[in-house]
Amino acid sequence: MAEKTIVLLDDDELLRELLHAELEAAGYIVVAAANSADLPQLLEDHNAALLISDLVMPDHEGMEGIFAVRQQFNIPIIAISSYEQYLRVVESIVTLTLKKPFTPQQLVQQVRRLLDS
C-alpha cells in the first residue's frame, strides 16, 4: 500500500491522539489539527488523500471547513460528530458520516474502504 496522507481535525485532544495513533498503525500518514483554520492550505501542503473532520469545534467550525474543502478539492471527507442534526446537514456533501461514539477500528475500516479500494 502506498502511504496516503489523512488530515484529521478534532478539538478533543485525547480522541485526536487516539485516532492519530490508530490510523498511523494502519499505515497512513496523519496530519492532526485542533481546528479548521487554514484547512485548504493544510490539505494542499500535505497532498491529503482524505479529510476526517469533527463538525463542532470552539475555535473554527468543522462545517465551515468542509464547505471550503468541497469547493476546492475532490477528496473523500468523513464527517464525525456526536450531534446527529449536524451530520444530517453535511451528509449530502461528504463521503461518509460517523456518529460519535465509534471505535477507532470502525474508523480505520471505513478509511481503508475509501482509500484502499
Rank of each mutant, 00 (worst) to 15 (best):
A25N: 13
A26L: 05
A26T: 07
G27M: 05
G27D: 07
Y28F: 14
Y28C: 06
Y28L: 05
Y28V: 06
Y28D: 02
V30R: 00
V30Q: 00
A32Q: 07
A32V: 06
A32M: 04
A33I: 03
A33G: 10
A34Q: 13
A34D: 08
N35D: 15
S36I: 01
S36N: 05
A37W: 04
A37G: 08
D38K: 10
D38Q: 11
L39W: 02
L39R: 00
L39Y: 00
P40I: 04
Q41G: 13
L43T: 01
E44Y: 14
H46S: 14
N47L: 12
N47C: 11
N47H: 14
A48K: 05
A49Y: 01
L51D: 05
L51K: 03
I52P: 01
S53F: 02
S53K: 00
D54I: 06
D54V: 03
L55W: 00
V56E: 12
P58R: 04
D59C: 04
H60C: 10
H60D: 05
E61A: 06
E61Y: 03
G62Y: 01
M63T: 09
M63C: 00
M63P: 04
E64Q: 12
E64A: 13
E64F: 11
G65V: 00
G65N: 01
I66W: 03
F67D: 07
F67C: 06
F67Y: 13
A68V: 07
A68S: 12
R70D: 03
R70E: 09
R70S: 13
Q71P: 02
Q71R: 15
Q71F: 09
Q72V: 07
Q72A: 12
F73L: 08
F73T: 05
N74W: 08
P76M: 09
I77K: 09
I78K: 11
I78S: 10
I78V: 15
A79V: 12
I80F: 07
S81Q: 11
S82M: 15
Y83H: 15
Y83S: 12
E84M: 14
E84D: 15
E84R: 14
E84Q: 15
Q85S: 15
Q85I: 14
L87M: 12
L87F: 01
V89E: 15
V89N: 12
V90T: 08
S92L: 13
I93A: 09
I93K: 09
I93D: 10
T95R: 02
T95N: 03
L96S: 08
L96W: 05
L96N: 07
L96C: 11
T97G: 04
T97P: 08
K99A: 13
K99M: 14
P101N: 02
P101D: 04
T103M: 08
P104L: 01
P104Q: 02
P104F: 02
P104E: 02
Q105L: 07
Q105N: 10
Q105Y: 06
Q106I: 02
Q106H: 05
L107C: 06
L107D: 00
V108A: 06
V108S: 00
Q109V: 09
Q110Y: 04
Q110V: 00
V111R: 02
V111T: 07
R112F: 07
R112G: 08
R112D: 14
R112K: 14
